[in-house]
Amino acid sequence: VQAIGILKQFQCQDPILVVAPSSLRGVWLEQLRRWAGVDPAKVQVIYAGSTPLDPDASWVIVSYALLVRQKHLLRDARGRPYRFVVCDECHYVKNPEAKRSRAVYAVAEEAKFLILISGTPVLNSAMELFPLLRLLDSRLPDESTFARRYFRSKNNDFGKSKWVEPQRELELHTYLFHKIGIRRKKEDVLKQLPAKRRQTILLKEATCGLSWQELMALEERLFGNADENEEDFAREELQRALKLVMKTKMRCCCDYVNDLLDNGIGKFLLFAHHRAMMDALESALQDRLRGGYIRIDGSTNQKERPDLVEQFQNDKDCHVALLSMTAMSEGVTLTAAEAVIFAELNWTPGVIVQCEARAHRLGQKNSVLIQYLLLEESATDSRCYRRLE
């Protein structure tokens, strides 16, 4: 929100480039509309590398992956450098040797105004900050001089050089947060937030395969001439539409969960309904977390469930609870979660509200972020969410 406010003040005729993880492109579109009143027609979200840049767009939103692969995105539609650049989740480019880092550096170095945003702490060393600091402040010394000033010595572990024994930490901290950066601590921000925050994440399915085409045809029959408040739909057809939505957005949901894990999010609940979606999400979690998650669905033995709940609540290494919406919507406390993610929605709002309440309930000390992963242009998902509101 702060970045949007700053850019709104400086916006001129030149387009603004926003570089973000793939899953956050739709979030930026929604937040620009909500907080700055930006006309969506003036925002170009790039979902496919072959998409030509719109010379009339005031905002261009692109993923890190596409920026690497598509060289024409490094300049605006008229072939000029971007004057205004925002990098969301900028820790994605802390490794100067990575291809996406080099692509972002090329754009950022030519920009007149640059904003870097991240909510992920630097866990290893202040040296990880150096490439980003150089983008923001060209007066910084070279990397070696910077390292010698803020570290006492250098070790070689397993063939890799690493600066150790930090020094002048107060000086560096003062430079970071009084000269070039703004730090918003979680405990300060929480005071300004409601106890529960709902947010929609729009997922774009670029392939438009058979499931998508079948879904569009079915939704046209179901909702084409229906009143917004109409509820009398054939249950079988609704369930079929929800299943097609699941099939269409399954890959995007898994990608989004991977992005969440990359961004260092705390513990979260991950709700789904269909077994195919649950299995796909679990596969993504297994690849990233190994044993750092639990899964509870209708097939989970009732005697095992309390132990799994306790594991999520008390084990600091258990990051995610993958839960069935029908099996886990009642009677369980999971207040260790700071976020609730819905990969699928339910036509009955009460089921969703009950699922939200697993984390947003007595014993929860923090504000709970609740995200709904909606398939863009799907009337089924959008109607489910509007019924909830």
Rank of each mutant, 00 (worst) to 15 (best):
255 D>Q: 12
127 M>Y: 14
273 H>G: 08
260 L>P: 00
308 L>V: 08
57 A>E: 07
114 L>E: 01
70 Q>C: 11
288 R>Q: 07
336 A>E: 09
99 K>G: 09
171 E>M: 10
238 L>C: 05
331 G>W: 11
233 F>I: 03
112 K>M: 04
386 R>Q: 06
299 S>R: 14
60 V>K: 00
363 G>A: 04
339 A>K: 11
279 D>I: 04
302 Q>S: 08
185 K>S: 08
107 V>F: 12
140 L>E: 13
123 L>M: 05
173 H>P: 03
120 T>V: 13
367 S>M: 11
350 G>R: 10
305 R>I: 05
364 Q>Y: 03
170 L>D: 08
381 D>N: 06
182 I>G: 06
272 A>C: 10
256 Y>P: 02
290 R>V: 10
17 L>T: 09
222 L>G: 11
322 L>T: 14
375 L>R: 07
65 A>K: 12
305 R>N: 02
148 R>E: 01
266 G>D: 15
275 R>A: 12
331 G>F: 08
303 K>Y: 04
104 V>T: 02
353 V>I: 14
181 G>D: 08
279 D>F: 09
380 T>P: 05
68 V>M: 11
32 L>F: 10
326 T>S: 09
279 D>N: 06
131 P>S: 09
321 A>G: 11
177 F>E: 05
342 F>C: 01
229 N>G: 09
362 L>G: 00
137 D>R: 04
156 N>M: 12
33 R>C: 12
116 L>R: 02
350 G>L: 14
260 L>M: 10
335 T>Y: 12
161 S>N: 04
99 K>F: 01
156 N>G: 10
302 Q>Y: 12
175 Y>R: 13
348 T>C: 13
153 S>R: 15
164 V>H: 14
29 L>P: 00
64 Y>G: 04
372 Y>T: 02
2 Q>R: 05
388 L>D: 01
288 R>L: 14
353 V>R: 08
25 R>Y: 00
6 I>H: 13
65 A>M: 10
284 A>G: 10
206 A>D: 15
42 K>S: 03
224 G>I: 06
39 D>L: 05
258 N>E: 14
29 L>D: 02
257 V>S: 04
179 K>M: 09
253 C>Q: 13
275 R>D: 05
381 D>W: 00
157 D>P: 04
264 G>F: 07
256 Y>I: 09
224 G>H: 09
177 F>D: 15
62 V>N: 04
254 C>D: 13
195 A>R: 14
40 P>D: 07
108 A>D: 02
36 A>F: 01
227 D>C: 03
227 D>M: 15
62 V>P: 07
251 R>A: 15
356 E>Y: 06
146 F>T: 09
375 L>I: 07
76 D>H: 10
148 R>Y: 02
30 E>C: 10
88 D>G: 13
93 V>C: 07
31 Q>G: 13
272 A>N: 03
269 L>R: 05
157 D>L: 01
28 W>N: 05
239 Q>Y: 04
51 T>E: 07
320 V>R: 00
350 G>P: 15
231 E>L: 06
340 V>T: 00
313 Q>M: 08
